[in-house]
Design a protein around this nucleic acid. Structure first.
Lengths: 354, 354
DNA sequence: GCTAGTCTCTGTATCGATACAGACTGGATC
DNA sequence: GATCCAGTCTGTATCGATACAGAGACTAGC
């Protein structure tokens, strides 16, 4: 059907190797012969070496995988994820490498298979949930990877780019505590798997399984412990899924309770924006003054006047891809902590006198 | 190094074929033998069939390519492109297919090579510039593709999903014309390749090379022709690149001219938002009242109160992927025109009395 | 004139799997 | 007891290229 490299070789009367060299190693043959070969290829409609066959023989593919442990369409909805992807894309582009986005089916068995079958040279693991099984598969395949979230049993030689979640969260909470807030709600995505939306009682913050969420909640708790507010006095609110409507729904009832929180610390900007939505949805005469903080500093946060913790999203993606594409010789350099900064905007203020 | 399928076969004492069947065709062997094989594979650390070798033999890859004729990092900056990608991603996910984002180097020779080398089963071509060369390569490779923008020499059997650019643009312009505007600027990205930012004189709209841009500009011109304003009376403004700052820079000087436009029709929301930025940047006492329209209805448009033409971005991506992944038997069904709608918001109003 | 060295090009082995035809069992059918 | 058949498994050919060692031809140097 489609001509192969052999067909071109036969047409020109040279060996297959020579045709291959005409494409991949121009210095291995004379310019005139090379031109003759390419011309013959053009005549025959030969589209160049088959990428799959070439990858098999060469032992690498020329593309890196990005793994989201969530719906692929969700990834494009999350502004932080999009900035991250932009960073990965930029680095990949500079490196002449493609990006493979691998959707993971809900069932773990199928998802494992998807990771096993991805034709890539390595993975950037952007996790929104527990992804240990995925790393197992990647290790088994012998592929390099970079993870972007802290993990409980990460080994020292694993490449990583991320932030100090706990310290970053602390900065936001300390700001809110400094404004005098003592009745505070902490809002986070999937605090416990399958927990319902709304307030959730948890004996200790250590029980939160997902390391990122645990890190942020711990940072929040740290800051309030410093002003004498213990974990048990904080209201923990679970949101199943990182979306504005979900956050709005989870928080809505809270403001109608006897002693409602005067501040809400959210584990992401998306959640925080959902809290602002919930407040905005109330009639003006029944709208409590609540301080709200987010996390990430996505583009929408600035427009909404949201106080938040900035982390460099695009940078994170860029560095993740670079750590993968040209690994530093020094193992320590493979562990990158990015700076974060508290960005104070209009969404936080002193406790209103009631 | 890493065990191959052969190694597993040897360990269990069966043929390579049988091990292959254990993975890919479980009905071809007894359940007990299959279990023995998978167990041995686990023992040996065999990560499952090599994706590349499998693809070579089977003749397909299990992933589709998305081609942007622009920087990959740019694609994630453009809100419309992001929604499009979300649509493609959702469809790919449902189909169990991966998405390969292929960055194209600036030089055409290199870019051709990139398209030749992409290991995919087909392409969604999201073009922001002339992409005929890319389609040539894809056709030569014998791969299916779906394009999402009108093309001048598209053949009837090519799959396509898009909108009636001209009619959609007409609806926006007719709205503005109906408000009484007669001094109007048309703003578009890359009207002519390499043209400088700012006003551009063009004898006729047919001279615009890019079909999408030409379609929209023609629609704008149509509506004004109907109220007696000819092409020559419209101010055409070129923006090199679809970004807010570029649009702001290109339009800025226009409002200081003798008879400034009372309305600006932009070829995309991003450009329109740039116009609003340019206006907002002026001191309040020197800020002309200008009606502005966009195109696409990206999420930011609603927040900015921008009058625009809505086209279903995510739907476009979804349908593009579906046309690629399960092609309709009927060729006519492979050509999908999506509906558009004029969304009137605060950014357009009657001509101010001066 | 002979050895070296450089340029080109060829031939064979190999990358790691899947497809497909066929061989072998053991029981059901008549 | 011969025939058929379904259920399992094997063996060989093949997918389309690249790597690498080596063969010829040709120039240079002494």
């Amino acid at each position: 059907m489609k001509p192969t490299l052999q067909a071109v070789a036969d047409a020109v009367g040279v060996s297959r190797s020579t045709v291959s060299n005409a494409y991949s190693r121009p210095d291995q043959l004379s310019a005139t012969l090379r031109e003759r070969i390419l011309e013959a290829a053009r005549q025959l409609g030969y589209p160049g070496p088959n990428p799959t066959a070439r990858s098999l023989r060469r032992g690498f593919v020329g593309s890196i995988g990005v793994l989201f442990t969530s719906q692929l369409s969700y990834a494009f909805t999350d502004p932080f994820a999009v900035r991250f992807l932009a960073g990965v894309g930029g680095a990949a582009e500079r490196h002449g490498t493609s990006m493979l986005l691998v959707p993971l089916p809900p069932a773990v068995t199928d998802a494992r298979r998807a990771v096993e079958n991805a034709a890539v040279d390595g993975f950037c693991v952007y996790c929104v949930a527990d992804e240990e099984w995925a790393l197992d598969v990647i290790r088994q395949r012998g592929l390099p990877f970079v993870s972007t979230a802290p993990r409980d049993n990460a080994s020292a030689d694993e490449r990583f780019v991320g932030i100090d979640e706990r310290a970053a969260a602390h900065s936001a909470a300390a700001h809110v505590a400094g404004l005098g807030h003592r009745r505070v709600a902490l809002l986070a995505d999937s605090v416990l798997p399958d927990a319902p939306a709304g307030p959730l009682t948890l004996a200790a913050v250590d029980q939160v399984p997902h390391p990122t969420t645990r890190g942020r909640l711990t940072g929040f708790a740290d800051a309030f412990a410093e002003v004498g507010v213990g974990w048990a006095e904080l209201t923990l609110v679970n949101v199943p899924g990182n979306s504005r409507p979900a956050a709005a729904a989870a928080i809505a009832g809270l403001f109608d309770q006897p002693a409602p929180p005067t501040a809400v610390l959210a584990g992401s900007d998306v959640l925080a924006l959902g809290v602002l939505d919930a407040l905005a949805a109330r009639p003006a005469h029944d709208r409590p003054t609540v301080s709200v903080t987010g996390f990430d500093d996505v583009p929408e946060a600035a427009a909404a006047g949201l106080t938040t913790v900035r982390q460099p999203a695009e940078e994170k993606g860029r560095i993740a891809a670079e750590l993968l594409l040209d690994p530093p010789a020094d193992a320590a350099a493979g562990h990158v902590l990015l700076p974060t900064a508290l960005v104070v905007r209009a969404s936080t203020g002193p406790v209103p006198r009631s």
